[in-house]
Amino acid sequence: MNLIQTFPFTAGFALAAWALGLATLPRKRLLGTALLAIGTLTLGGILATIWISLDRPPLRTLGETRLWYAFLLPIAAGVVCIRWKMTWPIYYAIPLAGLFLGINLAHPESWDRTLMPALRSILFVPHVLAYLLAYAFLSAAFAASIRGWRAPAGSDRCEQALEFADRSVQIGFAFLTLGLCIGAVWAKGAWGHYWAWDPKETWALLTWLGYLGYLHFRLQHPNQAKEAFLFLGAAWIVLLLCWFGLNLMPIAEQSVHTYTR
């Protein structure tokens, strides 16, 4: 239990490493990258500590999912940057991850050990991880849409951002679909039916439909970059509503999935 109490310090350390890393990256590539990696690995260490101390996967509360997200977003962006040789996504991913980590610092967790029986399934971790990876890639796409929106239409910058956004959405959407499928199979075992139109499920479907729309929009309109960026912004709002907003809606009381207690 006690290791968990160090969270504000370790998280603060990760934030500092990220901030320093971003500042050094343009001039000293290697050092900057190392600092960013240290910050991200620290978060991984925090997650492992929590997992071990609580004796359950820390994927239950909203705050816990934010922590994973802050860990996975830099990794997702890093993978894309290395795979397709760019650097700018990091400048969006790290601040966004930092923001989520900051929210956690501002709203301390209670570190609850308990895990309801329905969540005790081998599908729990793959299901939530698939969703968080999806959220990470789809947020990367959102970041790209902001960059693209600010760039003049038709410019290289705009085109690059669009390409990056497309790629991230395709990866993110695949994870979203996997999360949905795993969730359905899990629900069958835990609640007797694969799809119950629970509010959280309904909103997950809305998110999925939003990005499905985006993918097909891009197929039909390969040259309408600005509209594509707008589309991504709208889809991201649906995603956020599904992830966080649902707890604020009256309908949430009927959901078995809201992460509050």
């Binding site: 679909t177 996997l178 390969p222």
Partner: peptide
């Protein structure tokens, strides 16, 4: 559906920069 998602994922990760796998561009 899940298999299709995995195929899309692999396709995407393997594709090189500038390639638009599956799109009509």
């Amino acid at each position: 559906l899940a298999f299709g998602a995995i195929l899309h994922l692999l396709d995407r990760v393997i594709a090189k920069r500038g390639e638009h796998g599956g799109s009509k561009k």
